[in-house]
Design a protein around this nucleic acid. Structure first.
Lengths: 196, 196
DNA sequence: ATTATAGTCAACAATTTTGTTTAATAAAAA
DNA sequence: TTTTTATTAAACAAAATTGTTGACTATAAT
């Protein structure tokens, strides 16, 4: 609502996004967010009347930006393997910076109902799935419901990042060592996906 | 602490577990839990002085029970493929009933620090990883750091269940149709893991 | 029968979190 | 210069959440 754009509201959103999506502090209060943004709590309310408004703003924008990037990759005119490679890069970049983005979305849906993401439209996913199906026909990927291909892709990349704190303990690895494992995964996942 | 065991505290823990782990209401209040357990909020405090005590009790017990089951599967003297099959069954059963168990653990760690799970000891994981390595040597699995084998297993099974609300929207599938997709995955994942 | 224990309930107090308001400041616009 | 606008700060009110207490019931043990 402010007439001059001084970027303060962007700062607030960035702080909220960092707390919620990067640090996984899903219980962050308005005070926490204000602190993280280095300002008074009333500044938050100046820009967003309520906490929920701020949250859902962050939610919506992140959603839009990410799905735009993914759409772009899916629609590019590169050959299929290159396209998958791009998709993985985009997704990995996002997940590395904001590991808890998806977790937040799901838990938020469980809290506030599915209204928040109702505006997702399939868009390029359908045409991409058709491409996947074609690759399967051509014998480059094992035949299955093409949806599985995308689910596998996202699962193999995302889950280990999300669960990283848990798995470091489980495997008794240092943060550093587990980081090395994660770094190996892009190559490994790519090979898995195209194995016949 | 009660001398007679009338099962009331079990009831409370079960309600909490259902809310947190099954329904993904990670923000559940003591009131929410009391309601779900069909009793007064003070009954909670009768058994657990504070909310945190209840939560960490639920946390610990779930953790112990699950890792016990997994350990058992990993230590069984079945041949390797059968062993993996059991592991998948156990894991799938748990995740189907409590999809948000792992999510909760991670977010709880981000909130309260890693103290909660510090008592995990590697136990049978190490010997199982050695078995995986042996299978790789024998040429039954593609060679890689054996840790990846387990990460892949858990990722491919767990992630789609956790993200189910999100992916139903993303793929524009009904709850029912997405359920069918999920049901196909055990077979599919098994094949992926052993593909050379 | 008396006593200890399990369990429930309602009321209360303390704390946290949220949202509002009002006043003050500073800078840009008219 | 006057006026608007962005921004901050402090204080306040309202709500939500948590934790405590004491009274009350029922049951099993002594």
């Amino acid at each position: 609502m402010p007439l001059k754009d001084t970027g303060t509201d962007q700062l607030i959103k960035a702080a909220a996004k960092r707390l919620l999506f990067s640090e996984g502090k899903l219980h962050a209060t308005t005070q926490d967010i204000a602190d993280a943004a280095g300002m008074n709590r009333s500044a938050l309310h100046y820009y967003y009347r309520t906490r929920d408004q701020l949250i859902s703003q962050v939610f919506q924008e992140s959603m839009t930006v990410l799905s735009l990037k993914l759409d772009q990759a899916m629609l590019s005119d590169h050959p299929f393997p290159k396209k998958v490679d791009e998709l993985m890069d985009i997704y990995l970049t996002e997940m590395s910076e904001f590991p808890y983005e998806e977790t937040f979305m799901v838990t938020e849906m469980n809290r506030a109902g599915h209204t928040l993401i109702s505006k997702i439209k399939e868009g390029p996913v359908v045409s991409f799935l058709a491409e996947v199906a074609a690759e399967m026909e051509a014998g480059n990927i094992e035949k299955m419901n093409p949806v599985h291909f995308l689910i596998n892709l996202f699962s193999l990349l995302s889950y280990p990042i999300i669960m990283s704190p848990l798995y470091q303990q489980f495997f008794q690895l240092s943060k550093n060592d587990f980081g090395k494992i994660l770094a190996e995964r892009k190559e490994l996942v790519y090979r898995m996906l195209f194995k016949i």
